[in-house]
């Protein structure tokens, strides 16, 4: 499946199995458009007359997200945290602060819906399987050790009473 087909299947599953989440997504996004890039594949997406659509890539967009398959597989396998993938530049998001906030809320909304939607998990498994066949591997070892919380960070979090 192409990236466009994955995104379309994801949103269709949301509309079919989690219609309330789909409505919230539509209300959140409104007329805004986003450019998404996975490896070399670039798509523009948005809602046109209430329907999700893949749009021409030369259209203006309000925000942009760029990621690579290897990072997505590592995230799905629990080898890479989303925060770390952003800090290390494996996932990039561009746009105004409000557009970025909307993109992140949209992702959260889809992730939350995935708890109740087996079709999402099947799509995730298919993605991992296809990328594995193409040679994309998860990390050899758990790389979270690279991002161990430092003493200074812990001190700061303790002072702000933000430790879990």
């Amino acid at each position: 499946m192409s990236f466009a087909e994955y995104i379309t299947a994801l949103i269709e599953a949301l509309e079919t199995f989690e219609p309330s989440s789909f409505s919230r997504l539509k209300a959140l996004v409104g007329e805004k458009k986003a450019r998404l890039q996975l490896d070399d594949e670039v798509i523009n997406v948005g809602f046109v007359e209430g329907q999700f659509a893949i749009l021409p890539v030369d259209e203006h967009t309000d925000g942009e997200g760029v990621m690579d398959s290897a990072s997505v597989v590592r995230i799905l396998d629990g080898h890479l945290e989303v925060t770390d993938s952003i800090l290390s530049g494996h996932i990039m998001a561009k746009g105004t602060p409000s557009s970025l906030e909307e993109i992140l809320i949209a992702i959260e909304l889809i992730l939350e819906a995935s708890i109740h939607t087996p079709q999402f998990r099947a799509l995730s498994e298919q993605f991992r399987s296809e990328k594995f066949i193409k040679g994309t591997r998860s990390n050899e070892y758990d790389i979270t050790a690279l991002f161990e919380t430092g003493e200074k960070e812990l001190d700061l979090l303790a002072r702000l009473d933000l430790l879990p």
Binding site: L76, G78, E81, T83, S114, T144
Partner: peptide, 20 residues
Amino acid sequence: PKTLRRVPGAMAALRQDRAN
């Protein structure tokens, strides 16, 4: 506090508040 591997990754992405 511990930095650790968390699975499934999609749920880890959703629950960043429990990353450490």
